[in-house]
Simulated scan of single mutants.
Amino acid sequence: MAADSIPKKGKTNVAHIGWERFDSLKQDAIDLSSIARQQITGSQFLKFIIDEYQGVAKTGFMQKLRKENESQEDK
């Protein structure tokens, strides 16, 4: 492998999502590929999910944390 083909630090990151989530994501990408009749990778699908739904997920997560904190304070 040529030195110039190795990504420089900061150009790529890895987040471990677990094998079960990865398999589910991969299967969804395969299903989408079949419907679209073009290859969709798990990474492409995950990027779409993040780009389109990250704000909604952040709001939902904050609500969940608030409820958990409120229930802890009631004890």
Rank of each mutant, 00 (worst) to 15 (best):
Q44I: 08
K58L: 04
Y53R: 12
L65G: 00
S34Y: 08
S43R: 12
S33M: 01
T59S: 12
S43T: 15
I40W: 05
Q44Y: 06
I50A: 05
Q63F: 07
A29G: 03
A57N: 03
A29Q: 01
E52Y: 09
F45M: 07
I50Y: 06
A29Y: 02
G42D: 00
A29V: 03
Q63K: 09
T41P: 02
I35C: 05
F61N: 00
S33C: 01
G55T: 06
T59K: 11
I40Y: 05
Q39E: 14
L65C: 06
S43Q: 13
R66F: 10
F61G: 00
S33P: 00
T59N: 09
F45P: 00
V56C: 03
V56Q: 09
D31P: 02
F45A: 07
T41A: 11
A57S: 03
S34H: 11
Q38N: 13
I50Q: 02
K47A: 15
E52W: 05
A36M: 12
E52Q: 14
G60M: 01
I30T: 08
L46A: 15
M62H: 04
Q44H: 10
S43M: 14
I50V: 12
K58D: 05
A57W: 09
D51S: 15
V56W: 03
D28E: 14
I49F: 12
Q44G: 10
L46D: 04
I49Q: 15
